[in-house]
């Protein structure tokens, strides 16, 4: 049976790119903010760009917090992208302290100020562009992703899980940070698979094929 993939639409994210990415690898995906669609989905994707508190506000405004939490707890395959990773955590330090969905223990914090590279040039923030993944634990979504693959990042904050056992990929940018996590039915990544060329498309395909 074909998966019913639902991309959660809370007006914050390049939903269309994610949807077209799934189409490119042979799967239809529905963009929706209807809680019934999310409940009936076999696979749920939570994308997101912008600011943490603004994304939480919008999830709240569209009454999507309960359906998203239910989807994570239901055991069905769940993919968080960028802010969709950060929102799963307890709280973010972006613009003061703002609680997140609290589904994964830990915080979202900024890159340290004044990071420099080996030649003592200042490292720019946002961390914007293609950087390498180091795979720590290979989640089902990363089955076809080689260690060292380049993916596209754009973010100023990164997650710090309480339990480092959930980290599935790391990336180096001034600090070593969690580029992706995996716990049970939840895989979430800081980079954008829908903007990471062929590498990202293979991830979307593996997600669509994942049974959870």
């Amino acid at each position: 049976m074909a998966p019913r993939i639902v991309i959660v639409d809370y007006d914050r994210g390049n939903l269309r790119s994610v949807q077209k990415g799934f189409e490119r690898v042979g799967y239809d995906a529905v963009v929706s903010r209807n809680p019934k669609d999310i409940a009936n989905a076999t696979h749920v994707v939570l994308p997101g760009v912008g600011a943490f508190s603004d994304c939480m506000d919008n999830l709240d405004r569209f009454e999507l917090i309960t359906p998203v939490v239910a989807a994570v707890r239901s055991g069905k395959p769940f993919l968080g992208i960028c802010l969709g990773l950060q929102l799963l955590f307890d709280e973010s330090e972006e613009f003061g302290h703002r609680p997140g969905l609290g589904l994964i223990g830990g915080r979202v914090q900024p890159f340290p100020a004044d990071m420099t590279d080996a030649d003592s040039h200042r490292l720019k923030v946002p961390h914007m562009g293609w950087n390498r993944l180091h795979i720590v634990r290979r989640s089902p979504v990363f089955e076809q992703v080689p260690d060292g693959a380049y993916c596209y990042f754009v973010h100023s904050y990164h997650v710090v899980p309480d339990d480092l056992g959930v980290v599935s990929c790391t990336t180096q940018y001034g600090v070593l940070f969690a580029a992706a996590i995996w716990r049970d039915n939840v895989v979430a990544c800081q980079f954008h698979p829908e903007k990471s060329g062929e590498t990202g498309l293979t991830m979307l395909k593996s997600f669509a094929q994942w049974k959870g």
């Binding site: 596209y152 903007k195 062929e198 498309l201």
Partner: peptide, 8 residues
């Protein structure tokens, strides 16, 4: 373009 190009 966005339907076919999966880079920024």
């Amino acid at each position: 373009t966005a339907e076919q190009v999966f880079i920024p």
